[in-house]
């Protein structure tokens, strides 16, 4: 199978085992720019492994992953980490902010790592913090903000580099419904306005309902729910 035309990121026949544990067993995936795809499925079915493979964090045992037409496996480690830094953004369930830095410094961090000046980085960071309604927390440290606020700060940080693909693994997992939905609204609005693709791993259907399309992973195999009739 070849990736669907126009897809930004696509994977075919992915296999990955951790020792005797098969995490991915022929999984497939594809996403277009500006598209939000929910990845659902039971615990332990391989969702996070799929996300880590797609993001070039974990190499699959076999199968192909192409980003913008380029095979991830054909890149050097340095090229892959440059790709992650400049083209991808990440939001996880918790514990992603650097506790010693203020919120605005946290959001500015990816730009600082890319060599942007402090002033410019913090200016861009504040713009994103405003969009996520957390600009009032700029001087606070992560330990001084609530879970929902921290998660919005993390979303701002993931978007500050204008990534082409945003990877989110249970971004609302630790939040109540109201906060979780607000984070999803802001996250999907922000992603749509920049035409970023969003790979959204979640086990909550109400969160998945913010997506355009859903795939379900079971026993390391993926099923595109649009093709179920």
């Amino acid at each position: 199978m070849t990736p669907p035309p126009g897809s930004l990121l696509a994977a075919e026949e992915l296999r990955k085992a951790y020792g005797p544990t098969v995490a991915l067993d022929g999984a497939e995936f594809s996403i277009h720019p500006g598209e939000v795809v929910a990845v659902m499925g039971p615990s332990g079915s391989g969702k996070s492994t799929l996300l880590h493979c797609l993001a070039g964090i974990v190499p699959p045992d076999s199968g192909s992953i192409t980003y913008n037409g380029h095979e991830l496996a054909g890149m050097s480690d340095a090229q892959r980490s440059a790709l992650r830094r400049s083209e991808f953004g990440f939001v996880f369930q918790f514990g992603q902010l650097v506790p010693e830095l203020t919120c605005v410094e946290n959001v500015a961090l990816p730009l600082r790592l890319n060599g942007t000046s402090r002033k410019e980085a913090e200016k861009a960071a504040l713009t994103w913090m405003e969009r996520l309604e957390v600009d009032g927390l700029r001087k606070k440290r992560p330990g001084e903000v609530s879970g929902g606020q921290g998660q919005r700060v993390a979303v701002a940080r993931a978007l500050v580099t204008n990534p082409r693909v945003l990877f989110a693994d249970e971004p609302t997992g630790a939040l109540d419904s109201l906060n979780g939905e607000r984070v999803m609204e802001l996250l999907t609005d922000a992603a749509r306005s920049t035409n970023a693709a969003v790979v959204l791993v979640t086990h909550e259907a109400r969160v998945a309902a913010y997506s355009d399309r859903e795939i379900v992973v079971r026993d390391g195999k993926s099923r595109d729910m649009e093709r179920v009739v």
């Binding site: 259907a205 309902a209 997506s211 379900v216 729910m225």
Partner: peptide, 23 residues
């Protein structure tokens, strides 16, 4: 399993419409 998945897809389709209306 297909019956369940078909229903699941239908449910999620409805949930998307409602989410959109809600927004």
């Amino acid at each position: 399993a297909d019956i369940l998945d078909t229903q699941r897809a239908e449910h999620l389709r409805m949930m998307r419409i409602l989410t959109d209306r809600k927004r």
